[in-house]
Simulated assay, not measured.
Amino acid sequence: MGSMYTAVLFIRIENVASVQPVVAIKRTIFYRERAAGMYSALPYTFAQVAFNVPYILVQTLIYSVIVYAMIAFEWTVAKFFWTVFFMFFTLLYFTYYEMMAVGITPNHDIAAIVSSAFYVIWNLFAGFLIPRLRIPIWWRWLYWACPVAWTLYGMVVSQFGDLETPMEENGVTVKVFTEDYFGFKHSFLGAVAGAIIGFTVLFATIFAFSIKVLNFQRR
């Protein structure tokens, strides 16, 4: 689980450094081209969103093959597919989140500040530093609102949630341990996948709406 958490954390850092400045520059160009009547906001945002899909898919496949083999996960078609699925949509929603942050703020410097504030909360409530069952009940809603928590839930339960192998220390099976300690249930895997897709669509939609409605252009 630590390797999974580190991988997601690395993806976040890489996206912050590469996505926001580029999106901010493209938005400035978009203002000029929209004023010239070249195209409207929706085709622009659709192109921005669609452009990232094939690039991230190739990146995910290369990453998944290397890391999956190095960590020595179980080589089954289903488990490898789930790893690719969760890494692909995690890369997507991080990318779209950075695009959204730029879209709702005047420039990428302010976007970086806003993103960092949310990243602190996401790290705390991702379910790695503090498992969900140990988070106070009145703060647990932040766990369910954290996309990183859903990613870790899906990646852990898809790899270990169905293992009946007993653990050496106490004889409890891996499946029972993930349910009792982390609260991860293998039967919830489909809902987790749906939530990951939902976060991706949500961030992309807010980005499109912000580009269409907000205008930070200075004349």
Score class of each variant (00 low, 15 high):
A41F: 08
A41E: 00
L42G: 01
Y44N: 04
T45N: 08
F46Q: 09
F46C: 09
A47R: 12
A47K: 10
A50W: 01
L57M: 12
V58Y: 07
T60Y: 07
I62V: 15
S64I: 05
I66Y: 11
I66K: 09
A72L: 09
F73L: 14
E74V: 10
W75D: 10
F80I: 08
T83N: 15
F86I: 05
M87N: 14
F89C: 00
F89K: 01
T95D: 13
T95Y: 05
E98W: 07
M100D: 07
M100H: 06
V102G: 09
V102D: 07
G103T: 06
I104N: 12
I104W: 13
I104K: 09
I104F: 15
H108V: 10
D109F: 12
I110F: 02
A112E: 09
F118V: 08
V120P: 06
V120A: 15
W122F: 03
N123F: 11
F125L: 10
I130P: 05
R132V: 11
L133P: 05
L133G: 07
R134F: 13
R140P: 02
C146K: 01
V148E: 10
V157Q: 03
Q159H: 01
Q159C: 00
D162F: 03
L163S: 05
T165M: 00
P166E: 03
M167F: 09
E169K: 08
